[in-house]
């Protein structure tokens, strides 16, 4: 489509100046007209990227049009435009680097509009030669749950539903079945004759949740972290049924976090605020660990029961534990290969 078709001219004529400016600012604005989108859908073998861009552009223009009619505020206008483009973006895994930075830019602008304060959303990639693993010392954990609080604050978990990724179970000495454990104790700890065992997402090497997702909204990254693309999830909760460790949480309603408590250092696949109707889970604090920091739970643990590190580094603490301690994993017989080991002194 080199010559502009009548349909395209008609659509452009309808656009308000701002939307037109936006289209012009696009690097390949030629693809973004509605007519091209339609043409691509109708008679070309569909190039997904182009078609989506076209649709997003057209839809955005439409939204801008409606909004221009309804509200004189150009801020609103911009927000609607951003939201439309967000709606029509790709699965994060399939995005090019420039598309990733574009969506991060949109998300940051939207967040700034909503919360009046700047957030930073990373898109850092897995480092080569890194595979994260975790070890939990059941003879050290005293059940204080400092890790739970740290996790909630770090990862912007919904305060309204009291969501928590980490659960600490109180188990009687001599027992090992979680079925007889108490997952919601509240009394002075450590209680006599009890030991404590924490669970969270185990970032299985062979994760059942990933296989079952119908839209590929969850996957295992190169460094072993199982992540969710919150904007791609359709909320069918099949992964929740497939997880043998209760590692996944669903946003049954729109999550609520007090503005002053929002952690503004975020990762696209990590702690950026979620929305209603999508799945979320522990990401080994991807926004921290991809920078070299320890996960919040490890940092918060007062007893040193939590050990995190690189399984591919033979000098790491996690490798020392695996080589020198008697370790076990939960439900190993299921073949999920969790990268989360329990051990005792």
């Amino acid at each position: 489509m080199t010559e502009s078709s009548p349909l395209r001219r008609w659509v452009q004529g309808l656009l308000n100046p701002e939307a037109r400016r936006h289209l012009a600012a696009e690097p390949d604005a030629d693809d973004t007209g509605f007519a091209e989108g339609a043409a691509a859908v109708l008679d070309k073998p569909l190039d997904r990227r182009q078609a989506l861009r076209a649709l997003a552009g057209a839809a955005g223009a439409g939204a801008a049009l409606v909004n221009a009619a309804c509200s004189p505020l150009s801020g609103r206008n911009e927000e609607a435009q951003l939201r439309w483009e967000e709606f029509f973006k790709k699965n994060y895994r399939l995005m090019t680097d420039s598309e990733r930075s574009a969506t991060v830019d949109r998300l940051e602008r939207l967040a700034a509009g909503e919360q009046k304060e700047k957030v930073h959303i990373q898109t850092s990639k897995p480092a080569a030669g890194v595979l994260f693993g975790y070890a939990f010392n059941i003879s050290k954990c005293k059940g204080y749950q400092d890790c739970v609080t740290a996790c909630i604050e770090e990862n912007n978990l919904d305060r309204k539903s009291n969501m928590q990724y980490i659960r600490i179970f109180e188990i009687e000495n001599g027992q090992s079945s979680l079925a007889s454990a108490n997952g919601s104790y509240y009394h002075k700890v450590p209680a006599d004759g009890q030991y404590y065992l924490g669970t969270q997402c185990f970032h299985c090497e062979n994760p059942p949740c990933v296989s079952v997702c119908p839209v590929g909204a969850t996957w295992k990254e190169e460094d072993g972290i199982v992540v969710v693309d919150y904007d791609w999830c359709i909320g069918c909760r099949y992964c929740q049924a497939a997880c043998p460790y209760f590692g996944r949480r669903f946003n049954w309603s729109a999550p609520e976090i007090p503005a002053e408590e929002i952690n503004r250092e975020q990762h696209y696949l990590g702690n950026r605020p979620r929305k209603k109707g999508v799945m979320e889970k522990c990401t080994f604090c991807i926004q921290r660990t991809r920078q070299g920091k320890q996960p919040a739970c490890v940092e918060a643990c007062p007893t040193g029961a939590r050990i995190f590190g690189n399984l591919l580094d033979p000098n790491s603490e996690i490798r020392y534990v695996l080589a020198n301690k008697k370790v076990f994993r939960l439900k190993e017989e299921l073949g999920t290969e969790p990268k989360f080991w329990y051990f005792s002194d």
Partner: peptide, 9 residues
Amino acid sequence: LGGPHRVWH
């Protein structure tokens, strides 16, 4: 579904 408007995914 939690996000029926995203079924096009």
